[in-house]
Every structure is written in structure tokens, then in C-alpha cells.
Write a protein that binds this DNA or RNA. Structure first.
Lengths: 238, 238
DNA sequence: TTGAATTTGTACGTATGTATA
DNA sequence: ATATACATACGTACAAATTCA
């Protein structure tokens, strides 16, 4: 059994991957130039290029001709399933995640909202806007519509607890499920760009969903807009 | 039991919605101006505006100040679930959907591909690129990686049948399931912009997935890029 | 607006080791 | 054992994109 060293380019790749994953180089930063790397590591530029090619395939870096190679932010995973809840989701990912209240009011449902919630047209609904952070980064903004029946103080309770799940529990809804999710993409508008602290308009993942209680009655219609380069949606099993 | 007519603005809204959905006015076209509409329908401009507001909320039109109101293309639905197959999916939607072969070869798996397919590094895999059309519109481009074992002629069979599902059946794989899907978004690159016949770079829905046979063995790793304004992903039940 | 310097992309060459038929 | 193909590594030149004075 002879122990052989892996090829040079793989050693280079692994060393660079380590530096990136360990946080030695920060996301958004440029790596040293291929020339600088090859001189520092004592290998040919082609060897560095071979390593960079793999790092690109792994989604760790992005190379721009004439500019350099930038370290990419690794997106957070948003596991979407029947039991989807944002805060649980993120804490499972050992991330510090929090939702922040932006605005709440009782409004008249538009046709779309009434339809999704299976309410009569122009029913009254609670409307809540919030944004979410993970590891200090803004990762989503969300709008939620909740039937106003028997939940007059929902907004106040939500502000107190900071969690819709907890607010629901306060009203006797102990459990709920994701009925359907519709996923689209579009560029952020100025408002979203500001709220998500993006440098410029960028693609968003837009998830429109309906949550239902155990009896199948809709209790929440929501539109969540995820920052496309900070989040990815994972649908498992399914 | 008194029968009451709905408000005037709702009648206007419903008539306009009918015209759009029936294809009387085409996506991309400008609607008549609010003034022209109000005169033709014999209602006040504000009544037309109230109707347009609802159409905007329903995602049927987009209004641009100083220009007019454009009819939006309605995206196709891509139902994603355990039994996801593109062609079945689209035909269920009573759409004429077809996949078109672009390129196929046998290549050495990158680390990412080998990992996803649970193969040894640098295993040989079949690689297929294709694009999909629905109703004459390009809606996705896809890259698939399939373990090369016992499927030497996969590419030839795929070209003949035009369906991966059928090609698999030819090799005795009668059924397969979606194990996991990862959904992200980013702007199209020049190649994708060209293949999807987009006018300029636009947000894509990028779905990376793994399909497994009934025993749980990975048989396909794929990356599908959907044109963001022509497709939406629907995850049901889940 | 232009042009030079910098950086990455591509394409050729050479040499050598390793796996395979 | 030999021939062939493939992987690795370095050499050189120039094209293309970006940056900045």
C-alpha cells in the first residue's frame, strides 16, 4: 500500500477552499491575481487556473475577465416543506435568525387575497410586513395576510412575541401546514432593494404560499421575497 | 332573494380580464389609454383606474407612468413534486411542450457531479444539454448528468425518443423519484440569454435536483434554468 | 474619449508520469 | 512488454475585458 500525494492542482484547490471556508478571505473580496497566487505557491499559472476552475464549479468563487476572482457568499438554505416555519428552519441551520416587524394594519382584502384565503370579497384581514435576518444579513421581506376573524389583536401579539407561530398559538391554532407554494423570480424594486440592503436591484426568489390549519382552512396567505444571492430554497423528499 | 348587480368597476375589471385571458389582447401589447377605455365603455376614467388597479394586483398587467398599461405574459406552471417529469407536467397543463436535444457526450464527472450522483471521483457520466419549449416559447435550458454504467447508448436513445423517461425505460429503469431540489435565482449569462431567446439578461429560476430509482440510487443529476418571466414553480402539498 | 496597464481567457507547445488495452 | 491514451505540469504568446489616469 503506497501512499501517493494528490495532484498539485488539487492541493492548491483544497488550500484555497480551506482559506475561503475558514473565513480567511471574505465574501465579496477579490482573491489575489492568478499571477500572484502562482508566485506565492510556487506553481505555474495554469495549475492555479485548474484549481480555480474547480472552485468555480463548487460555487465558491466567480471569475470576471479583466477584473479578478471574487469570493462568493454562501447562501443560506431555506428548507421548504409541509412544516415550513422560518425561525425553526434557520435555527436548525445553526444560524442566528430573527424576524423584525415593519408594519401592521387591518385592511380590506383584495380579490387575490380573498381568493387565496377562501374569504368573501372585501373581507377584513390582518396585514403584516416584516423582514428577516440571518447572521446579521437581511435575507427576506415578507407580507402576510391573515383572516381577521377572532384575531383582532393578532398584530399586537405578533409584535410582542416576534413570531407568527406563537401569535397563532395564542389564538388556539396549535399547528398549521403549507398547502401550496408558488415560486417565481424577478428583480427587486427600489423598496425591496433598500429593505434588503442590496447595493443595486438584484434577482429575488418570490414565494407565494398558503398555510392551512389541520382542518384545511386557510389561515395565512403570504408573499416572501428572498434575496437571491443570500438564500436558496431546498425542497426535500417531495 | 334580491339579485344585485356588482359595482361598475368590477364589471369593467371582469370584462378587461376576460379580454386578456381569452387572448383578445396579446401579452406585450399596450392596452388602450385610460381615457380611450373610459370613452369606449362610457364610464369615468376613475372607474377604469379602479379596474386596472385590480388587474395589476392579479398580475395581469403592469402600468408604466407616462407610457401606458402593458399586458403581461402569464407564466406557465411547473408543478414540482416527487414525480416531477417535464413533458407530463406540461401536457397536464394542456400545453404543447417539447424538449429539444442540444448536445450530448460522455465526460468525466467533476467533483460536484460525482458527489451528487454518489459516484467515485472522475467516473464517466453521460452529459446531455437540452432546451424546452411550451406553446412555441423557450422556457428552459437543462443540463443532465447520468451515470454511464450500463447506459452506453443513452444519448442515442434519448435523441431517438426525445424523452429521458423513455430512454431510462429502455435500460430497465421503469420509475424514478425526485430526491431533492435546490432552487436559486440569478441573471442569465449570454449563452442562456441566446438559447432562451431573451431580449436581454433576465432573472432565471435555477433548479438543481437529484433523481433516484426506487432503491434510492441516484440516476440523474440535473440543472434546469427556467426563464423567470415565463415559468413559475408550484410546490403542492409537500 | 482615449489609451496604457492589469487581469483573465484561449490556444498553441513540450515533457513526463500513469492507467489501459 | 508495448503501444496508446489520458492526466499533470510548466512554457509562451496573444486576445479580450476591465480599470484608471
Amino acid at each position: 500500500m503506497t501512499e501517493t500525494k494528490p495532484p498539485l492542482w488539487q492541493q492548491v484547490r483544497d488550500e484555497m477552499a480551506r482559506d475561503i471556508r475558514s473565513g480567511k478571505v471574505y465574501p465579496g473580496e477579490l482573491l489575489p491575481t492568478e499571477k500572484a497566487l502562482s508566485e506565492r505557491l510556487g506553481v505555474h499559472r495554469h495549475t492555479v487556473r485548474r484549481a480555480l476552475q474547480e472552485l468555480r464549479e463548487q460555487g465558491l468563487v466567480r471569475t470576471e475577465q479583466g477584473r479578478g476572482t471574487v469570493v462568493l457568499e454562501q447562501p443560506f438554505e431555506y428548507k421548504m416543506g409541509r412544516r415550513t416555519r422560518f425561525s425553526e428552519n434557520m435555527s436548525l441551520n445553526r444560524l442566528k435568525a430573527r424576524s423584525h416587524f415593519l408594519y401592521g394594519d387591518v385592511i380590506t382584502a383584495s380579490e387575490l387575497v380573498a381568493g387565496q384565503l377562501e374569504l368573501r370579497p372585501r373581507s377584513r384581514v390582518s396585514y403584516i410586513e416584516m423582514y428577516g435576518e440571518a447572521e446579521g444579513k437581511r435575507v427576506f421581506v415578507a407580507s402576510q395576510y391573515i383572516p381577521h376573524v377572532d384575531m383582532e389583536d393578532l398584530i399586537a401579539v405578533f409584535r410582542k412575541t416576534g413570531s407568527l407561530t406563537k401569535a397563532y398559538r395564542h389564538y388556539g391554532i396549535k399547528d398549521y401546514f403549507r398547502k401550496v407554494s408558488r415560486i417565481t423570480t424577478r428583480l427587486s424594486n427600489p423598496e425591496e432593494t433598500r429593505l434588503l440592503k442590496l447595493k443595486q436591484k438584484q434577482p429575488l426568489l418570490v414565494v407565494e404560499y398558503v398555510n392551512v390549519d389541520p382542518s384545511g382552512r386557510p389561515i395565512e396567505f403570504g408573499i416572501t421575497r428572498f434575496s437571491g444571492d443570500r438564500m436558496e430554497i431546498v425542497v426535500e423528499g417531495n
